[in-house]
Amino acid sequence: MTRQPRWLIGMVGMAALLVLPPFLRSYGLYLLSYWLVFVIATMGLNLTVGYAGQASLGHAAFLGIGAYSVAIVMKAGCSFWLGLPLSAVLCFVVGLGLGFPALRVQSIYLAFATLGFSVAALLVMRYEEWLTGGTSGINDVGRPSLFGLDLGGNLAYYYFVLAVAVVVAALLRGVLRSPWGKAFTALRDNPIRAESLGIDVRAYTLLSFAIGASCAGIAGALLASLVQFVDPTPFGLGVSFTMYLMVVVGGSGTFFGPALGAVVGVLLPEWLRFAQGWYLTAFGVAVIVLMLWLPGGLLSLPDRLKARAIAASRPRT
């Protein structure tokens, strides 16, 4: 019963995402697609950070690896449909690698290792000109077509990104519902107890990084085709921080958290543009206020309201 309203809101939101976009102009459509890309990426980070409880501040690097994979593959004349799975697989493998430090260190030290990884990845994007085009980037990244259906238009591409987001969400839902998912949260809540319960802590730690990374890889692939240009700037440390911010603001360890968090991280600055030069200051302040109001993230609001309702209905003594 308690979960019903949440799902109802989810269904209404989904319906809106399906029905409303044809009425939007290109700016709105583009922003919605941009938002969805970050929803996919932060869903992955949410698995690593929110469910498995690993500090990861280098997630933008995976977004970049995904974006560059697709751009490079398509420049070489191959199809987007080769690039997309390649992005996911490549990020999965690199993510496994990044998971190894997590086996030895935690919290700030792990954050440091992931930050370091992100710096290194950025340097490769900037200096390996033969592969990545260096700082001038890769231009004219195409958009795919599917069964003869051209996804090049802004509306068509939006629906494509939406479809991918739904598929990724469904897959993640499956993972989280399975015994695996339970193991992830056990890892976050008490690793030593999880170990004593027979959970292979090593394997699950690595997996949480790898799956989180491959989501970002898919998001990166979609981003490259959305912007149709790839250069290193959108994959810097600042973006990693913003993605972390999105996870926590939305509600880390909650399924719909990333969707809301990405609204804050991607759409809120655009809505605040009326504040002119001060819009990013307003954004920063909004984030602080949000955290002070709901330290558990936006999705802790229903629980908060419920707790208040219970407190109010309790007879006063």
Partner: peptide, 21 residues
């Protein structure tokens, strides 16, 4: 009208679309 790209091509594209809109 004055808009900030945040030095990010992805945002710059959004703003170009907005200008055209």
């Amino acid at each position: 009208t004055i808009d900030d790209t945040q030095s990010n091509p992805g945002i710059a594209k959004a703003l170009a679309l907005k200008a055209v809109d």
